[in-house]
Write a protein that binds this DNA or RNA. Structure first.
Lengths: 248, 248
DNA sequence: ATTATTTTGATTATTTTTGAACAAATTAAA
DNA sequence: TTTAATTTGTTCAAAAATAATCAAAATAAT
C-alpha cells in the first residue's frame, strides 16, 4: 500500500467519520504507526485535515469558508498561537483593521466576543464575524474572487475615511530591506491600513521571515510590532530598526 | 477523546444550553474533572466563554440572529418566476445594482453565467456570485447583521460613485401613493440605487402590492418597470403613473 | 546488475497530555 | 461571623504521543 492510496483512504474515512485514530489506521492500512503519523502530517501540511494528538480531525466546513480551507488550515498551530497573542492586545472599544491573509483570518475566533469595531476587506473575516458581538464595517470596491477580498482604488479611499486604533496585517515576506507583497493591489491596501491606524501589528509565521518576493512596498518601520512564532536571527535586526518583536 | 474534540463539544453544548457544569462534562466526555477544568480555562483564555465556579457560561447570551435563508425560502416559486423574467432583461456587458431583499437575492441563480458587473450591498448575493462569471463590486460601509447587508451614509456615497445600466430593487410595500420601507437606511439606499442607474426594476411578489408600511420614501415613478406575479387591479394604477408592469 | 533515491520501520529521547494529591481560595450554610 | 463544603491552582508523576535518528526495504534510474 503506497502513500497516494493511503492518503485517499484516510481522506475518505475522515470525510465519513469526522475523526481518525492513529492506532486504528495503522491496523486498517497494515502499516506502522509512524507511517500513519507521517501521512497525517503531510495531509495537515496541505491543509487537508487538522492534526490532533493521536489522530486527526476534519477541517470544520462551517468554521472556514470552503475555498479558503486549504490555505487557512496550513500551519494552524503556529497561526493560532500568533493570533491568540494578538487577540490579547485587543480591548473592548478598539477599532481595528483586519487584512485579508490566512493568518489574520484566524484572529476571528479569538475576538468573537469582544465589543469592538472591525473594518475589513476580507470576505472570510466578514463571514466569520457576522453573527458575533463585533460590529463590522465592510471595505467597498472591486471583489477579487481568488483572494476572496476587496482591493483597488475605491477600497483604499474607503480605508482613508476611517481611523483605527490598531491594524492587523499580513505580508508575503519581510526582511531587513522591507515589506514584500505578491501584487500591487495587496501592497497598496496594506499601506492604506498602516497609514490610517495608530498602531500596526504584523502577524506572520516563520515562513515569511527573511523572504523577499515580487514587490517591495514599504520599510520595516511601517510595522510597530511583529508577532511571530519564528526565532530567526533576522528578528534581532527588526528590533534594531525600531520594530518590537513578540515571539509566541 | 482529545482536546480539540472536547473543545468542539463543549462549545457546541455551551451554545445550545448556555451554561455547563464541570462534573457533568467530566462524565459526558469521559475524562477527569481536572481535565475539564483545564479545558475550560484554555477556552476562557481565548475569550470563548466565561469561567464560573464549577463550570462556565456563554460570553454574551445573544438571541438567535435573523436567518436570511428562512425569509428567502418563502414564496419561492413566485419569486423564482419573477426573477427568471427579470434575468431575461440582463445582457452581457450590463452593470447592475442588486438590492438586499429576499426576492432580488433569487435573481443570482439566473445570472451566474452572464458576463456582467454586479454592484451590491447584500452579503448573500456576494456569496452566491463569488465563484461565477459575474464581476462583483461590493458596497462598503457599516454591516447590518440582521439584514446581512451594508447600509448608511458611506454605502450611499459608494453607490453615487458608480452608474449602472439597470437596478433591481425590492421594497416593503408599494401603492399608488408611493414606495414604502421599514427603515430609513433601506429607503436611502434604494433611492441611491435608483438615482444612479439608467433603468430601475422593482421585483415584488403579490404580498407587497398595495401595502403601505412604516416609511414612504419615493414616488412610484422612481420605478421604470415592476415585475410581479400579482394580478391586483392596483397594477393598472401604476401603469397610469407611467410605470410599466410585467406580469409573470 | 548496480547504484542512487525514496519509503518504511525500529529505537530512543523529548514533549504533551492526563490524573492524583494537597494547600489555598471561594462559596454556601449555620 | 464562623464553619463546612466546594472549587481551584500547583506540583508531581505516569502514560501516551511525538520528533529525531538511523537502518532496512522497496523503488527507480543508470
Amino acid at each position: 500500500m503506497n502513500f497516494p492510496k493511503r492518503k485517499q483512504l484516510i481522506s475518505k474515512k475522515l470525510d465519513q467519520v469526522g475523526e481518525v485514530d492513529i492506532k486504528q489506521l495503522a491496523e486498517e492500512l497494515n502499516v506502522s504507526e509512524i507511517t500513519v503519523r507521517r501521512d497525517l502530517n503531510q495531509l495537515a501540511d496541505d491543509g487537508l485535515l487538522y492534526r490532533t494528538h493521536g489522530g486527526a480531525m476534519k477541517v470544520d466546513p462551517m468554521e472556514v469558508p470552503y475555498q479558503f480551507v486549504n490555505k487557512a488550515a496550513k500551519n494552524v498551530e503556529a497561526k493560532d498561537a500568533i493570533c491568540r497573542t494578538a487577540a490579547r492586545e485587543i480591548m473592548d472599544g478598539d477599532i481595528i483593521f483586519m487584512d485579508c491573509g490566512s493568518t489574520v483570518f484566524r484572529l476571528c475566533q479569538f475576538i468573537k466576543n469582544k465589543k469592538i469595531k472591525v473594518i475589513t476587506n476580507s470576505l472570510p473575516v466578514i463571514y466569520a464575524l457576522q453573527n458575533s458581538l463585533v460590529s463590522l464595517n465592510i471595505i467597498g470596491g472591486e471583489f477579487n474572487a481568488e483572494r476572496q477580498a476587496v482591493h483597488g482604488k475605491i477600497a483604499n479611499e474607503h480605508i482613508a475615511r476611517y481611523h483605527a486604533t490598531k491594524a492587523f496585517l499580513g505580508v508575503d515576506g519581510i526582511s531587513r530591506n522591507g515589506l514584500f507583497a505578491n501584487s500591487e493591489l495587496e501592497a497598496d491596501i496594506t499601506q492604506a491600513f498602516a497609514a490610517n491606524s495608530s498602531k500596526t501589528y504584523l502577524l506572520c509565521d516563520g515562513s515569511k521571515i527573511g523572504k523577499e518576493t515580487y514587490l517591495k512596498f514599504g520599510d520595516v518601520k511601517m510595522i510597530d510590532t511583529i508577532i511571530t512564532n519564528s526565532s530567526s536571527e533576522e528578528l534581532a535586526g527588526f528590533e534594531k530598526l525600531g520594530t518590537q518583536v513578540t515571539k509566541v
